[in-house]
Design a protein around this nucleic acid. Structure first.
Lengths: 182, 182
DNA sequence: ACAGGCATGTAAATAGTTACATGATTCG
DNA sequence: CGAATCATGTAACTATTTACATGCCTGT
């Protein structure tokens, strides 16, 4: 049996508990794991086909009115596969932050422009924090504590990051006071 | 003029100040930006060829003894391109953390195994923190303050993350005391 | 009637990793 | 002499995004 792609497990995890259509899986990802594990239609639909062929999920016709619609439910094999994966130590830890990269090379710019990078980074984290906070009430309602735990971790992280940006901005200002910008 | 790939700017940034061979660029990335912006030989060498054709860098033969070796230096056009990019607001902010994803789905496991996920995540962050701290003395020596700022940000982040894992572990333990594992 | 959301998918492009292939030099 | 490091590159694969194409249903 071939190993499944990492995205396959997001799909399995998302339909565990309640069957979902490809469209709903995408919506579920966008409303939860998106910030640390995204997935696009271009991955989800082919993945559902593969998982179906591998017997991990079954597609069930579930039209809404006259509109064709297939929801996928996880099989016993799929549940087993998901649990086996959950028990493996995590292997992927990636971060690609263009702001950090720009800050790293900021010596090529005057201090005032280095500060601009930090402000853009901070604004971004603040915006993400706002989105995450907006998701909180919904997560609180569910009985599953883990999505809420992860969400609150994300909020704490964005708060930390935004604060760090602020402190670094102050630090640059302190070492190049003559370059202060409004 | 076509837009450059994001990795092109890492290359430009890394050779700014001192010309480097492809091999040295890879080593520089691995010793600094790797944790938030990685690059492999499979990207670096073709990128150097493209940048050379675009006039952003020039290759200079610089053999070590009899061993052939080409170092690349940034041109005035390349410097300009790099600075123009630094002035654009960052667009890529990605994070792919398989540990967080597993924790998100941890309701599929007994609490003791959810704790295992957090322990693996914490161990990983602790290991990364150790590597980052080992890079600190070298970064302190350089006169450029930005790589050091970013490195210390990375250390603070891994410390925060490891601590969060510890707190979440305690939280699970508190809500499922009968499942306590040694 | 039209907009917006539901729904499914594919094609092409872009990105990036891993493994392989090759060979020189330096240090112990 | 052998191992490690310096050095350059390619091929194949995996992953992922973006854009496109299509069309139905629901509410205003």
């Amino acid at each position: 049996m071939d190993e499944l792609s990492p995205t396959a497990y997001v799909v399995l995890g998302m339909i565990r508990g309640a069957p979902k259509s490809g469209y709903e899986i995408k919506a579920a990802v966008d409303g939860s794991t998106r910030f640390f594990w995204a997935a696009s239609y271009g991955q989800i639909y082919p993945e559902l086909k593969r998982l179906s062929e591998a017997g991990m999920v079954v597609g069930v016709e579930a039209p809404t009115g006259g509109r064709p619609r297939t929801v996928y439910e996880i099989t016993a094999d799929g549940e087993e596969e998901l649990r086996a994966w959950l028990r493996q130590p995590p292997r992927t830890y990636e971060m690609r932050d263009e702001g950090l990269l720009k800050l790293f090379f900021a010596a090529a710019l005057p201090p005032a422009e280095a500060i601009e990078i930090l402000r853009a980074m901070r604004a971004h984290r603040l915006a993400v924090g706002k989105q995450l906070r907006a998701m909180e009430p919904e997560a609180i309602e569910k009985e599953d504590p883990f999505p809420l735990m992860v969400l609150r971790g994300g909020i704490e992280f964005t708060d930390w990051f935004a604060d760090w940006c602020e402190r670094m901005e102050a630090q640059i200002l302190a070492s190049a006071p003559e370059k202060r910008s409004s």
